[in-house]
């Protein structure tokens, strides 16, 4: 597999001016318009600079939970706070500014395939750019340098003028990480970031996130459904089942029995990624 990462420092570069932030969920409930209750009275407190895995099967509510943290999903009850932002109470410009401080990566990478790697990463600067620059895709010298630096830190600088659609899965996810890093975020969210990748690439991307947490000191919250990844890369694990927190403790020492309680069934081979 030629897609593994060969570079020294993924997390190099400047830390955000504001430092990492804590995340607070206080009695958060999300009921979708179709009546599905995705989160039930979830209360969590994540300290600044923690590296947390949210583990659960699909449909357990972990995607919904991570989206309440940057306001992509509005809770129908309760309160979400990220650092100084009361995210669940923000609307419009204030919400966009809060999102600008919260980086996010996705299972499907969510790049614009027809646009260049540069313009995809420049999206991370949009919260701080005037509209005319955004529309034309014209970066200021400063924004341009931030984008180049974040692409360099994930080893994608030489692809900067390639079309995003022409990259492999691992490369796309690294561009997506660069997009999030361009925001100079205080918090990094990752929604099943390695579920579409082969095992070696998955480990490389998880190592990237680990490095971002260690060297930039960002608070990192990563949704996973694989138990070995949670154990290996994160320090704290939150188990979600049917929208409720059923486990909260150190990830490294979580037993198979703990995972069985989270999954609600015996552990199977497909619950591990392997090497």
């Amino acid at each position: 597999m030629s897609d593994t990462l060969t570079r020294s420092e993924a997390g190099g570069g400047t830390p955000p001016a504001s430092g990492p932030w804590p995340i607070e969920l206080d009695d958060v409930t999300v009921r979708y318009p179709n009546g599905v209750v995705a989160l039930k009275n979830v209360s969590l407190s994540i300290a600044a600079g923690e590296m947390v895995a949210v583990v659960g099967l699909s449909g357990s509510g972990k995607s919904t939970m991570i989206r309440t943290i940057n306001g992509l999903v509005q809770p129908t009850g309760g309160r979400v706070t990220v650092g100084p932002h009361a995210v669940s109470e923000l609307r419009g410009r204030a919400l966009r500014e809060a999102r600008g401080d919260i980086g996010m990566i996705f299972q499907a990478f969510n790049l614009a395939d027809r646009a260049s790697v540069f313009h995809n990463a420049l999206v991370g600067r949009f919260a701080h750019m005037p509209t005319w620059r955004t529309m034309l895709g014209l970066a200021s010298a400063e924004d341009r340098e931030m984008v180049m630096r974040s692409l360099d830190s994930v080893g994608m600088l030489e692809k900067v003028w390639h079309r995003a659609g022409a990259l492999s899965g691992g490369q796309k996810q690294r561009v997506a990480i660069a997009r999030a890093l361009s925001q100079e975020p205080a918090v990094m969210l990752a929604d099943e970031p390695v579920a579409s990748l082969d095992p070696p690439t998955a480990h490389a991307v998880m190592a990237d996130l680990e490095d971002i947490n260690a060297s930039r000191g960002l608070t990192v919250l990563v949704n996973l459904h694989l138990m070995d990844l949670a154990r290996q890369y994160t320090t704290r694990m939150i188990g979600l089942r049917a929208g409720e927190v059923v486990f909260d403790g150190p990830a490294a020492t979580a037993t198979d029995a703990d995972f069985e309680a989270i999954y609600g069934r015996p552990v199977q081979a497909r619950d591990r990624l392997g090497e």
Partner: peptide, 20 residues
């Protein structure tokens, strides 16, 4: 997907339409 990513990084409606 790309629309969600632009929204998540704090882009407004015009930015979302243009780049997402």
């Amino acid at each position: 997907g790309a629309v969600e990513a632009v929204r998540a990084s704090g882009g407004g409606l015009l930015a979302t339409v243009r780049w997402g």
